[in-house]
Nucleic acid binder design. Structure first.
Length: 103
DNA sequence: CAAGTGACAATAA
DNA sequence: TTTATTGCCACTT
């Protein structure tokens, strides 16, 4: 019900498979261009199990969440690679190629 | 209503 | 390059 969270979940669900989006981008989609932190909070607070592709959400520089996610960065990296996203050794994705266009 | 919190982001050193 | 600091916004208490 908390509109923002719901919007966040909806937005991340719109991310196409094989693409990633940054917290800032999602925040912008949801209507709060500076609420990137809330986006992250939304994912951490009430992740709809099996429904929210949280693994498609990365930092502004393409790095993955530092050990706070679903069991570890390794899992997130594995899921991203599973969808066709190349994750660097530093757990970073090439945003230039995999960042969601937003459309 | 006020204060505290946080999977971020941008800038400074 | 990494680390530290500041600003930010919405949610929780």
């Amino acid at each position: 019900m908390q509109g923002f969270f719901e919007k966040v979940y909806a937005a991340i669900r719109l991310i196409p498979r094989g693409k990633v989006a940054t917290y800032g981008d999602i925040a912008r989609m949801t209507g709060a261009p500076r609420a990137a932190r809330q986006v992250g909070w939304a994912l951490h607070s009430n992740p709809r199990p099996g429904v929210n592709p949280c693994h498609r959400v990365v930092f502004a520089d393409g790095s993955l969440t530092d050990g706070f996610a679903f069991g570890g960065r390794d899992i997130q990296r594995a899921m991203l690679e599973e969808e066709g996203v190349e994750v660097g050794e530093d757990y970073r994705v090439n945003l230039a190629e995999y960042r969601w266009d937003g459309k």
